[in-house]
Amino acid sequence: MQGLVQKALGGHIRSIARIITMVESESPYTEEIMKLIYPHTGNAHIIGITGSPGAGKSTLTDKLIDNFKQQGKNVGVIAVDPSSPFTGGAILADRIRMQRHSVDPNVYIRSMGTRGSLGGLAKSTYEAAMILDACGKDVIFIETVGVGQSEIDIVKIADSVCLILVPGMGDDIQIMKAGIMEIADVFVVNKADRDGFERVVAEVRIMLDLVKHGNWTPPVLTTVAEKAKGLPELTQSLMDHGKFLSESREGLDKKLKRITIEVEEILQREIARFTERTWKENCTPELLDSLLAKKTDPYTVAGKILEMVFVNN
């Protein structure tokens, strides 16, 4: 495994792709891979691109790749699309818009299916981003699935979150709602050649005036992604935010919070694994019968299982 990870760290594309697959499919090597990767992470600027389906996330990402490449950056992209809840299959098609970059050695694009995850990302998107970071990408774009109001997992893993809005998606009350509107570091009103875009801009600005934020006030930008309009300004804003984080207390806090979440998630996963195993070993038909007959209750049963988990491990 060490050999494969070393090759990946050296920038060998196939090895990078392979270790992402191993982590994504929860191979037994995952822990070993991530332990080898971790010391090399922390150099990339991770940018989340989120917004509703059809808002222009992929097209905008495609144009952002150009702009960051011009700055001499080595770019990674993780594009997430939904998996079927019925078959587990998926059509991963975000990269259609980015295919012209596919032969560029300084651009790596990876598609991921959500595989049951509901927060707008795939289960292993964070690990994939860490791998790309360690393997020498300067900027990593994470394109979420098309989101609604509350799929905000991106805020946990991105340094900068860019929310793409479009005209015609409802009134100002939508913009006042909690959830996705609260997590953006940069607002983009895309398709700004269509009627009503000024109103969206104004409404977001008013909303921002009313909420308290720290030392970074999220800018509200307009773009026409298809024509690459407004892209230099957006690129600059994202770079400014990256700089702000690297120089401020907010940036350090964000990192500390992310590390805490990471340890918590590993703990939860491991405890869940032990608990599930103990439950499966002890879930007898007799026990289920006594639950059905109300001779015992789920809380008592769960309590006993938990006791076993902690005593046995």
Binding site: S83, S84, T87, G89, I91, A93, R95, Q99, S102, S111
Partner: peptide, 15 residues
């Protein structure tokens, strides 16, 4: 692409 998706595969569609 759709048929492979429906049989549970992840299909990367390039256009």
């Amino acid at each position: 692409a759709r048929a492979l998706r429906d049989s549970g595969m992840e299909v990367i569609y390039t256009g």
